[in-house]
Amino acid sequence: MVSSSPLSLRVRSIRAEADGIYSYELVTQGSQPLPAYTAGAHLTLTLPGGMARSYSLANRPDEDDHYLIAVGLDRRGRGGSVFMHTQARVGDVFSTQPPRNNFELANDAKHSTFIAGGIGITPIRSMIARLSAERQSWELHYCVRNRGAAAFLKELESLPNVHLYFDQEQTPTRLDLEALIAKQDADTHIYCCGPKMMLDSFLSHTKSHSPDRIHFERFSAELDAGSLRKQYRVRLARSGQVLDIAPGVTILDAMINAGLSPVHSCAQGICGSCETIVLEGRPDHKDQVLTQAEKASGRRMMICCSGSLDDELVLDL
């Protein structure tokens, strides 16, 4: 499992970036330096009540005096965004781990094409800032409901290689995702971050492309898919304890219900805190942390969201 020294970050400023989107500038307490990060990275904040939520970093990686996150309000979510929008204040202090990156930018790409939907612009803003600073070739296609819902709109409109799509304006504009992907050169790297429908369409249209140049990040793991509908057993090798995992229950939930205290944080398959070694059995991966090669090896899994393809898994716990 991944472990690292926690950070205490103070909210230095809060700003409305768009309808339903606030940004938060976070700084360290005292003289503690901010750990460096790369474009596409995220923070997992521990909120009151034990909630842990992961938010992409939106500022340039060379801005080493603060982190910038943006949070879209989702009243149908699990409560993190509602807390950040209604209760977080300047001066509040949150605990977090140093940034992690599961959505890395390919530094050697001849050209990079970015596709963002809604709050999915957050990590991509950091990426295009880095590429711009290094005078590398890129383009952005940003889809939102209307101009009021577009975060960082004034900044993006000033850039010549940004294409904006508003599907609920008086004169709607919509991105033809299939056509866009079809015209990309073979050596272009393509990135997508946005809601489930956009991601599903993106993956469908990029099936024939080299996986090395297709990059995407979901807002959360696919918790409703595959093995979460089946029952299986988990054997904990160190303790010898056996857990029966009921349909719809994660391994993490089953362990907590059994009185155990597994290391975890986001519970969304994003942060990587619950990464666990698999000794026997085939995991059914649903996380956004492991690479395709790591998933294919079956040697590690995220117990907060992934399940089992077999009737039994043996874990190094």
Results as ranks from 00 to 15, higher is better:
residue 88 A to S: 10
residue 315 L to D: 03
residue 64 D to K: 08
residue 60 R to D: 08
residue 179 A to C: 15
residue 239 S to L: 09
residue 317 L to F: 05
residue 296 A to Y: 04
residue 262 P to I: 05
residue 129 A to C: 00
residue 84 M to L: 15
residue 221 A to E: 05
residue 201 S to Q: 10
residue 316 D to R: 11
residue 113 T to H: 07
residue 57 L to C: 08
residue 44 T to Q: 03
residue 264 H to W: 10
residue 127 M to W: 07
residue 96 T to N: 04
residue 180 L to H: 08
residue 24 Y to H: 00
residue 297 S to L: 00
residue 121 I to A: 06
residue 37 Y to Q: 02
residue 230 K to F: 15
residue 55 Y to A: 04
residue 59 N to D: 11
residue 6 P to F: 13
residue 240 G to S: 14
residue 136 Q to H: 01
residue 58 A to H: 06
residue 164 L to F: 03
residue 124 I to Q: 11
residue 24 Y to F: 04
residue 94 F to W: 02
residue 181 I to H: 05
residue 278 V to M: 04
residue 231 Q to R: 15
residue 23 S to W: 09
residue 120 G to W: 03
residue 87 Q to K: 10
residue 229 R to A: 13
residue 275 E to P: 11
residue 1 M to H: 10
residue 1 M to A: 01
residue 86 T to N: 15
residue 158 S to G: 15
residue 238 R to F: 14
residue 78 R to I: 13
residue 25 E to A: 00
residue 118 G to Q: 02
residue 187 D to L: 15
residue 259 G to D: 06
residue 234 V to N: 08
residue 192 C to R: 07
residue 303 I to E: 05
residue 264 H to A: 11
residue 86 T to E: 15
residue 132 S to A: 15
residue 90 V to P: 07
residue 54 S to C: 15
residue 56 S to Y: 02
residue 155 E to N: 02
residue 204 S to H: 13
